[in-house]
């Protein structure tokens, strides 16, 4: 494990293999809470935080499952860990960091069913990342999500004043916007060459 390796993982998670635009993980909150930029940033930060934590915890949970020979319980164990983690984070933040809690409050419970969080836990196991790599992948994956949702919300804010054909109003035009953003992110795939 070297620093360049970690850099490659981070760049991959943020740009080339962006969770939203190339892996399609976390599309529901991406479409659901991207009407305003400030709420989008709140959601993005909350997801980054939980993804980092979840990567760390599920790493140990997976070690435990492997040691007990219970690998087939992976999905059930991971989702339980994530759900309880989100619950604890919510309670902890309410006491210790009330300002951050009020900023993120609404989005925290939503994160349990964000497939990016469970996705990152499963992908960490699949790619055989060690502890540091897992955490780095979790956090940078979250940052990639933050970047995507922020860009998307910024476009959608100005889209509100644009005239769209009636049948394209709402989600269709949002999906097309996301498609165009994905097209932009596709340009980063050229960077794989020097990884």
């Amino acid at each position: 494990m070297s620093l360049t390796n970690l850099l490659a993982i981070s760049l991959g998670a943020i740009l080339t293999n962006n969770f939203i635009f190339s892996q399609f993980l976390g599309i529901c909150p991406f479409l659901g809470v991207s009407k305003k930029t400030d709420t989008a940033i709140g959601m993005g930060l909350a997801v980054t935080f939980v993804m980092g934590l979840a990567s760390a915890f599920t790493f140990f949970v997976n070690k435990l499952l492997v040691a007990l020979g219970l690998e087939y319980m992976q999905t059930v164990a991971f989702i339980l860990v994530i759900a309880s983690l989100v619950q604890f984070v919510e309670m902890f933040m309410k006491k210790a960091m009330p300002t951050l809690y009020t900023a993120l409050g609404v989005y925290l419970p939503l994160i349990t069913t964000n497939c990016a969080v469970l996705g990152v836990a499963l992908l960490n196991v699949q790619s055989n990342y060690n502890f540091i790599e897992s955490v780095v992948y979790g956090i940078t994956g979250g940052l990639g999500f933050l970047l995507a949702i922020f860009l998307f919300a910024a476009v959608r804010e100005s889209l509100e004043f644009a005239e769209t054909p009636k049948c394209f109003e709402g989600f269709p035009i949002a999906l097309i916007t996301a498609g165009l953003l994905a097209l932009g992110f596709m340009g980063f795939s050229g960077m794989v060459v020097w990884q």
């Binding site: 399609f24 049948c167 394209f168």
Partner: peptide
């Protein structure tokens, strides 16, 4: 087949659906 196409084709499909529902 790339991600771009996924977003665009689902967007078009929902637009068609909204057109007929309207």
């Amino acid at each position: 087949v790339l991600p771009v196409g996924g977003f665009l084709s689902l967007g078009l499909l929902i637009a068609v659906m909204q057109y007929f529902l309207n």
